[in-house]
C-alpha cells in the first residue's frame, strides 16, 4: 500500500521521485541558514584557532609555524600560571559557596512560601539580568577606596580597620571582592533554576516525608537534595565552565590586577590578542579554555551515564 497516495500528496501526476527531490530541496533550504552561520562564524574560526595556536603570528607580518612553542611558553609563563590557578580557585569556590547558598535560598523560598515569595524571587533574579558592565559599576561604587560606600560608612563610624582595607587594590583581597560581586550577580539565576526543579517534586513525596515526622530541613537534605542532584550537577558544570570563560567582571572591576591577582584565562587571552597583538599565543589560550571546558562537560555526561539516571 502506498501511503503517499492515501495521504493525497498535492499533485497526483507528480512522480514519487519528484516528491523525494522536493523533500530534499526543502531540507537543504531549511538547514542552510543555520549550517552557514555555524560553518562561517564557528567552525572555520575553530579550525583557524588550532592553526594559529601553532604559529608565531601577530597582526602584521608573516606567520611562522612553530609547533607547540606557544603552549610551552604559556605554561612556563608566570602570568598564565596564576591565571590558571585563579580560574580553578574561582571554580572551586563557586561550586562550594554559590551552589549551597542558592540551594538554601531556593529551598527556603519553596518551603516557607508566602505572599512575598514571587516578589523576592524577582528581586534576586534582577541581579542576574543586569549586564556585567552595570554590575561592575555598582561593585566599584561599593568597594572603591576612600570614596566608595564601604569606605565612606567605615569613616562615618570610625571603623579604621575597615577603612584601611583596599578591596580592589590589595592583591590578597581583590580576588574575594570580585568573587563577592560575582556571587551577588550570579546566584539569582541558580536560585530560579533550583526553585523550578524543587517545585517539580510531587507533593506526595513531601507528604510522605511529613508523615514520617521529617521537618523541613531533614526533608531538604535527605529527600530534595538527592532528587535534584542531576540539575545541581548541571549547575556545577555551568559554574566550572563559566569560570574558565570568566572575563567581564574581573576585567571591568580590576583589569586582572593588582599584579595577577584577578587575572583569568579570558583576560589573558584578550590582552595577548588585542593589546599585545600576539595572535598565536592568544589562540593557544583559547585552545586551553576549550579543552578544559570540554573535559569538564564530558566528565559530567559520563558521570551521568554511569549512574544511569537522567533528570
Amino acid at each position: 500500500m502506498d501511503y503517499d497516495i492515501l495521504l493525497g500528496k498535492p499533485a497526483k501526476d507528480k512522480s514519487r521521485k519528484k516528491q523525494m527531490r522536493e523533500i530534499i530541496f526543502f531540507k537543504i533550504f531549511f538547514l542552510l541558514p543555520a549550517v552557514l552561520f555555524l560553518a562561517v562564524f564557528m567552525y572555520y574560526p575553530i579550525k583557524e584557532t588550532f592553526q594559529l595556536s601553532m604559529m608565531r603570528a601577530s597582526g602584521l607580518g608573516e606567520s611562522v609555524f612553530i609547533g607547540f612553542e606557544n603552549y610551552v611558553r604559556l605554561f612556563t609563563n608566570e602570568e598564565f600560571q596564576s591565571g590558571l590557578i585563579n580560574v580553578f580557585r574561582w571554580a572551586f569556590w563557586s561550586v562550594v559557596i554559590q551552589i549551597p547558598l542558592s540551594f538554601f535560598i531556593a529551598f527556603s523560598l519553596v518551603a516557607y512560601r508566602n505572599k512575598m515569595t514571587n516578589g523576592l524571587r524577582a528581586v534576586y533574579y534582577l541581579a542576574s539580568v543586569l549586564p556585567s558592565a552595570i554590575v561592575a559599576m555598582l561593585g566599584r561604587f561599593m568597594f572603591a577606596p576612600n570614596f566608595g560606600i564601604i569606605a565612606s560608612i567605615s569613616r562615618k563610624f570610625n571603623w579604621i580597620w575597615l577603612d584601611k582595607v583596599d578591596f580592589l587594590g590589595d592583591p590578597r583581597i581583590a580576588f574575594w571582592s570580585v568573587f563577592f560581586v560575582a556571587t551577588w550577580a550570579y546566584i539569582g539565576f541558580y536560585i530560579v533554576y533550583i526553585m523550578a526543579n524543587i517545585e517539580q517534586i510531587p507533593v506526595d513525596i513531601r507528604e510522605a516525608a511529613e508523615l514520617d515526622g521529617a521537618n523541613r530541613w531533614q526533608y531538604a537534605i535527605h529527600i530534595v537534595l538527592p532528587i535534584i542532584s542531576y540539575p545541581l550537577r548541571i549547575i556545577a558544570v555551568l559554574c566550572v565552565v563559566g569560570s574558565l570563560k570568566l572575563f567581564d567582571l574581573p576585567y571591568l572591576l580590576t583589569g586582572g590586577g593588582p599584579g595577577h591577582a584577578t587575572k583569568t584565562l579570558g583576560i589573558i587571552l584578550y590582552q595577548q590578542g588585542f593589546v599585545n597583538w600576539q595572535y598565536g599565543k592568544a589562540a593557544a589560550v583559547g585552545v586551553v579554555i576549550f579543552l578544559l571546558s570540554l573535559i569538564f562537560t564530558v566528565a559530567q555526561f559520563s558521570w551521568q551515564r554511569k549512574e544511569g539516571d537522567i533528570g
Binding site: 562561517v40 584557532t49 565552565v241 590578542g273 592568544a282 589562540a283 583559547g286
Partner: peptide
Amino acid sequence: SKVTEVIFYLILAGYFVPIQMVLIPLYKL
C-alpha cells in the same frame, strides 16, 4: 534521516564551544 542526525550533532557540538576560543579568528574573519 542519517544526514540530518549528523548535522544535528555538529550543531549540538557548537553549543559547547566557548566564544573566547574563537575570538582571534572571529576578529580576523
